[in-house]
Computed example of a mutant assay.
Amino acid sequence: MEIVFLNRFERSFGKADVERGQVFIGEHQGIWSSGWHSVPEQGADGQETWYEGTSWEELLASFRHGVARRMKEGYRPLLDGMLEDSPFWERRQQLASLLHCYADRHANEDTVAPLRHWRRAKATEEKRSAYLIATNRELHLVAVFLPRTPEELGQLPGFGKTKVEKYGAELLELVSALPREHDFPLQWVENAISEEQLSEWIFLQKEEKYGKSVSLVQEKKRLLTGIRQGSSLADLEKELGLTRRMLVERIDRLDEEGYDVLPLVDQELSAVDEGEIRQAESAMQELGDRYLKPLYQRLYASEAAGGGAGQAEQQYEKLRMIRIRYRRQRQSSAV
């Protein structure tokens, strides 16, 4: 195997005790591999293979996930910049990271629960996704730091002027009766979180982030394999455990990335009336194919009033599929 990248890591225990290891990326006859192994003086114990295969995308995701896990355990690279971040001592000055770290360490589900309930109700009322109202992290910040005024709420990451004006009064009311033992402004958090605690928190976030990347890459691989093998959307639903809507969105994204998803698209559209497809293509030619809502309103407005959410979902699914084929046909004719 030819080593194309190697970096040594160290973890200190006291002044004299140091554990060392190496991360590597190698290649042999078109097969990529990455992993971790102890330095020679410490033997072969702890050797791990993180990835072995032909996909550079999957290799990179697995490599970053493994590096983040080792850095969360306290190892530090001799060559910095392993996770595309600024140096740790620069991140240490960022108050937002400190606030999130402190909130995660002091989160109380009993305090967060009413905020989650409020968010669900607000999302239903506004017909928006819950995370657009407030993310889980933002709710944790409110529950831990317990702001009393709009100005204090605005000091929390994620709460800009628009969000404070729109939701501030309701959020402040929800936490107004809870006892608070600290003050604003929140610079005191810099002394409440040690560098070791912040470091562990940062690399835990990285481990989770790159772990999700690994899962998404593997999911993408299985999805493409299923398409090549002639699977239907119903087959892929069962195999991948995704909802039909999530599958269609991922297929749309794969098409944008240049992957061939037409076998699946043609299979799904074979059950759709040709006249309906031609009407949709004509609307795309007239209105453009970037946004689906104008197309939906043009083609299905008369049905929308009498149909439920399920019918609208099916119609949007058809439009996504028709749009994929429409775009591919336009590209072919332009060549």
Score class of each variant (00 low, 15 high):
M1I: 07
M1F: 08
F5Y: 15
R11N: 04
G14V: 05
G14K: 09
D17K: 15
V18E: 03
V23R: 09
G26H: 03
H28Q: 12
I31Q: 13
S33I: 03
S34I: 10
S38T: 13
E41G: 05
G43D: 04
A44T: 11
G46A: 04
G46V: 07
E48A: 12
E48S: 12
E52C: 13
E52V: 13
W56E: 13
E57L: 08
A61P: 04
A61G: 02
G66K: 00
V67K: 00
Y75C: 02
Y75N: 02
L79T: 15
G81L: 02
L83C: 04
W89Q: 07
Q94W: 11
A96P: 04
S97Y: 15
L98H: 14
H100T: 03
H100G: 02
Y102R: 06
A107Q: 12
N108G: 12
N108A: 14
T124M: 12
E126Q: 14
E126V: 00
R137A: 15
E138L: 02
L139S: 05
H140D: 15
G154S: 14
V164S: 07
K166D: 06
G168S: 09
A169F: 05
E173C: 07
E173P: 00
S176V: 05
A177C: 05
R180P: 08
E181R: 11
W188D: 05
A192I: 11
S194E: 02
I202T: 11
L204G: 10
E208N: 14
E208C: 11
Y210T: 01
V214N: 01
R222K: 14
S231F: 15
S232T: 15
K238T: 14
K238V: 13
L240S: 06
G241K: 09
R244S: 11
E249A: 13
I251G: 01
I251N: 03
D252E: 14
G258Y: 01
Y259N: 14
D260F: 10
Q267A: 13
A271C: 03
G275Y: 07
I277K: 08
Q279G: 01
A280I: 07
S282Y: 01
A283T: 09
E286H: 06
L292E: 15
K293N: 11
P294C: 12
Y296R: 04
R298S: 13
R298N: 10
A301R: 15
S302H: 14
E303G: 04
A309E: 12
Q314F: 00
K318Q: 13
K318E: 07
L319G: 03
L319T: 00
I324F: 00
Y326R: 09
Q329C: 05
S333M: 11
V335G: 10
